[in-house]
Design a protein around this nucleic acid. Structure first.
Lengths: 186, 186
DNA sequence: ATGCTAGTGGACCGATCGGTACAGACCAAT
DNA sequence: ATTGGTCTGTACCGATCGGTCCACTAGCAT
């Protein structure tokens, strides 16, 4: 009986994240998010007093944490960095496929805000850097020389971002799966 | 006296492309585009009967053609593929800088449409494949083995897309300039 | 002069946008 | 039993969204 009904706050965040990564920040309206989550309108402004911007940040952070888990899972049992990176790419490709080849990066979509005043851009960057730092830590742990680990991690995440875009344009996850074979040696 | 006043059609396309790459497709409103271009509202619907979707496609194609020119310029006088690729990345970094570190890919922003019915996604993909094909042609011309040229070109464009995103999050073009040093050998 | 077309001015539209106001429901602690 | 918080139901708001309508002008051919 542990499948407790998620709070409307959580449902709002999940719905927002889902819609943002498909239609983009501006493309997903409040009404859509409300409908998708089943949460009442008043709850949104109760939990997120500043409305969409607050929700956008929460959704980005929530999705960012999810991605962080995927990164950790991928590298946890990996014998070396390259294998972990390959696992990560394949996991992401799988998620992309089951989203009907629609869902790109859940965080970067939020980059298309008039970001400076809301601080959203800053928040997105912090999330990205968190991914890179986590990946770099795994790289070092798995034997990548410390002075190369940061760059290798940045390269991997950059490639994933690019592949997500190309994958959405093509509606195919192939390019995501091809990343491991294209990474420079480490 | 050759600087003929651009037609309102051209001004609309340029303004739309400029705004889309900063704020995204949904983030840039018709009113913004009209104001930025100085063109009258009626002209928009005269030249683009289907409104924003038509304009979006035209803007993406126009910007795509511009990118194609940049690609060709970069490889035209290059002694080898790697040098051409490096030139391309540095050119893009420069454009990014003079846009106040805001302008990402002018084409991918349009990917956040409910693209299937308007055919916009398809159009975006065609533009991308055009870039890749052009880059691959330069690669072959510059001595890259034919069976590797396509993949090398795809890798480069993918990296550029990812770097554009990261650059926007960081408001720094550094990552764009770092691409050449991270590409696998060809 | 006439007709034809491309392009424009300007007023107007319903729909949707994101957001607000406020009373009531629920539930723990006292 | 009453209080005080969190959360929700309902109704409403002005602003903006993308789009339409139609009369008009400019230019050019006949």
């Amino acid at each position: 009986m542990n499948e407790a009904a998620p709070s409307s706050r959580d449902r709002l965040i999940a719905a927002a994240a889902r819609l943002f990564r498909q239609r983009g920040y501006h493309g997903a309206g409040i009404a859509d998010i409300l409908a998708e989550s089943g949460a009442p309108r008043s709850s949104l402004y109760h939990h997120f007093p500043n409305g969409k911007a607050d929700l956008g940040r929460a959704a980005a952070e929530w999705a960012g944490a999810g991605m962080l888990r995927i990164i950790d899972d991928s590298f946890a049992n990996a014998p070396d960095y390259a294998t972990g990176a390959a696992t990560l790419c394949h996991k992401l490709a799988k998620f992309f496929d089951i989203s009907d080849h629609r869902d790109g990066c859940p965080v970067s979509s939020v980059l298309y805000e008039d970001t400076e005043e809301t601080g959203l851009r800053q928040a997105v960057d912090t999330i990205f850097e968190g991914w890179i730092a986590a990946t770099a830590a795994h790289a070092r742990r798995l034997g990548v020389p410390a002075e190369k680990a940061g760059e290798a991690a940045e390269t991997l995440l950059m490639a994933i971002q690019g592949a997500w875009i190309l994958a959405r344009a093509r509606r195919s996850s192939d390019v995501l799966r091809s990343i491991p074979g294209r990474l420079p040696e480490v």
